[in-house]
């Protein structure tokens, strides 16, 4: 049995679901960041699989390059926010940071 497009899509779906669970269930801001990284990787593997099993014009790989660049930006900003939150609240528990709650 050859490995086809659907196999990679199923792996991407499983990773996306796990990332979603991680985002929803973890209390620490870093745990949420881990979930977001899982979701971005799930998107990336879909893009590259579509590229491989599509026309072979490399558009999917270009999109994956941009996703990786934005993931780097997002990690830097998120870590800065987490450290700022730690300096202000003394904790990175997301339940504590509810000052904007109406």
């Amino acid at each position: 049995m050859a490995i086809g497009l659907e196999h990679y899509l199923v792996v991407g779906a499983v990773l996306f679901a796990l990332g979603l669970v991680c985002c929803m269930a973890r209390r620490t801001a870093i745990g949420i960041l881990i979930g977001i990284e899982l979701i971005l990787n799930a998107a990336n593997i879909n893009l590259i699989a579509f590229d491989r099993f599509g026309t072979g014009r490399f558009d999917g790989q270009i999109f994956a390059v941009f996703v990786i660049i934005l993931a780097a930006c997002e990690a830097a900003i998120a870590l800065a926010i987490i450290i700022g939150m730690f300096m202000n609240f003394g904790t990175i528990d997301t339940d504590v940071a509810d000052k904007l709650e109406g």
């Binding site: 269930a25 973890r26 209390r27 620490t28 870093i30 745990g31 960041l33 881990i34 990284e37 990787n41 990786i68 993931a71 780097a72 990690a75 830097a76 870590l79 987490i82 450290i83 730690f86 003394g90 904790t91 990175i92 528990d93």
Partner: peptide, 27 residues
Amino acid sequence: IYVGGILVLLLFGVLLTSRSLDQLQIR
């Protein structure tokens, strides 16, 4: 980028804020 950069950043974040982590396991 991911393994060499983002993951190291993540571990920095974990270690820099580790004072609050022991009472903060999971929901």
